[in-house]
Amino acid sequence: MRNSSTGRVLRRVVTYGFVTLGALASIFPLYYMVVGSLQLHADSAFSGLIPRSGNIGLQNYRDVNKAISLLPSLGNSAIFTLGTVVLTIVIGLPAGYALARLRFPGKPAVAGMLILVLVLPFQVMMIPLYILVVRDYGLADNYIGMILPFAVNATAVLIFRQFFVSLPDELFDAAHIDGAGEVRTLLLVAAPLTKPAILTASVITFIGPWNEFLWPFLITKQHSMQPLAVSLGEYVSTNAATATNPYGVILAGACVLAVPVIALFLIAQRHFTSAALGSGVKE
């Protein structure tokens, strides 16, 4: 009995040890980025991982702000990202409802096309999108041109579809018995329950455009229209080498780019799990 108890304790210690090591390995790049962004003089030695009071400051953040004007770039990133998230929810929610609850010809084909869109990399569609958005619509150096290719997010549609599939049929049957049509059922019955799905889709959608470099780089030639990822990328390729601490400046810009995503995840993570819905159905 004692040996069995000792074995369980050892297995638990080993499991927790592996989990702890995995967590530390995952956090280490973030820690290195923050420490490196605060170093006044680059220190690539192992001892540089420990902050020293004489080599810590905000000069790298001042340098990157002076070079690329962080606030306007952050504003461009916010407009691009929030516009994409809003359109993704507005389009994805009814699309997911239709795929989950409506019957119409070609429904399996539509679902298959969504999977195909997820499989295809964005680079495959980039050239025709560029021709369509820039040449045909004339939306270069325009927020609409940045947002349009990301307005329909197949992942978000599938998230909403799966959420609506998981809802009890009794909720929709009761609405239909009361004479509600599909639009009214969506707005008054289904949509109020989708907070977890909306938050999940929003966070997943937010990460993509916020970190997106290639598409905004292609269609924005004016520096005043470039999101932070593009401004930071151009700075790294052209002017970073002239800074007193090039790596520190680059890491400072990376920290500024990462903070909104981390903050959003920390705020929204407790809402990811949907609340139990069975209590809303009367037997």
Score class of each variant (00 low, 15 high):
residue 109 A to Y: 08
residue 117 V to F: 10
residue 33 M to Q: 01
residue 253 G to Y: 01
residue 179 G to T: 06
residue 14 V to G: 06
residue 198 I to P: 02
residue 10 L to V: 15
residue 255 C to A: 10
residue 88 T to E: 14
residue 262 I to Y: 04
residue 143 Y to L: 13
residue 76 N to R: 12
residue 16 Y to D: 09
residue 2 R to C: 05
residue 89 I to V: 15
residue 189 V to L: 03
residue 20 T to Q: 02
residue 5 S to C: 04
residue 174 A to R: 06
residue 30 L to A: 13
residue 256 V to G: 00
residue 201 A to V: 14
residue 25 A to T: 14
residue 182 E to C: 02
residue 46 F to H: 09
residue 50 I to N: 07
residue 269 Q to I: 00
residue 248 G to I: 04
residue 85 V to Q: 00
residue 60 N to P: 10
residue 15 T to A: 11
residue 55 N to K: 03
residue 164 F to G: 07
residue 281 V to H: 03
residue 38 L to I: 11
residue 213 F to Y: 15
residue 81 T to C: 10
residue 18 F to Y: 09
residue 262 I to D: 12
residue 208 G to R: 01
residue 146 M to G: 06
residue 93 L to W: 02
residue 192 P to S: 06
residue 152 V to F: 14
residue 112 G to K: 09
residue 171 L to E: 14
residue 278 G to M: 03
residue 88 T to S: 09
residue 202 S to P: 13
residue 75 G to V: 11
residue 269 Q to T: 01
residue 51 P to Y: 02
residue 28 F to V: 10
residue 52 R to L: 01
residue 43 D to Y: 08
residue 228 L to D: 03
residue 199 L to F: 13
residue 162 Q to W: 01
residue 165 V to A: 03
residue 127 I to C: 10
residue 14 V to W: 08
residue 14 V to I: 15
residue 205 T to Y: 01
residue 144 I to Y: 05
residue 230 V to E: 00
residue 222 Q to P: 05
residue 241 A to W: 06
residue 217 F to K: 12
residue 2 R to V: 14
residue 88 T to Q: 08
residue 57 G to I: 08
residue 282 K to R: 10
residue 11 R to P: 15
residue 42 A to Y: 06
residue 216 P to K: 11
residue 30 L to W: 03
residue 92 G to T: 03
residue 251 L to I: 08
residue 24 L to N: 08
residue 215 W to G: 01
residue 19 V to K: 02
residue 170 E to G: 07
residue 283 E to W: 11
residue 53 S to E: 05
residue 76 N to I: 13
residue 35 V to F: 04
residue 148 L to K: 04
residue 236 V to G: 00
residue 124 V to Q: 05
residue 224 S to G: 03
residue 113 M to D: 03
residue 166 S to A: 15
residue 278 G to I: 00
residue 118 L to T: 01
residue 163 F to N: 00
residue 167 L to A: 10
residue 246 P to N: 01
residue 25 A to C: 13
residue 152 V to Q: 00
residue 179 G to V: 02
residue 11 R to H: 14
residue 155 T to C: 07
residue 188 L to N: 05
residue 141 D to S: 07
residue 93 L to P: 06
residue 71 L to W: 14
residue 10 L to K: 11
residue 133 V to L: 09
residue 223 H to K: 06
residue 128 P to G: 05
residue 75 G to L: 15
residue 64 V to S: 00
residue 186 L to Q: 05
residue 47 S to M: 09
residue 224 S to K: 05
residue 161 R to Y: 06
residue 114 L to T: 06
residue 195 K to Q: 13
residue 236 V to P: 07
residue 261 V to Y: 02
residue 124 V to L: 02
residue 39 Q to E: 12
residue 251 L to Q: 06
residue 258 A to F: 04
residue 185 T to A: 14
residue 21 L to C: 10
residue 162 Q to P: 09
residue 149 P to E: 08
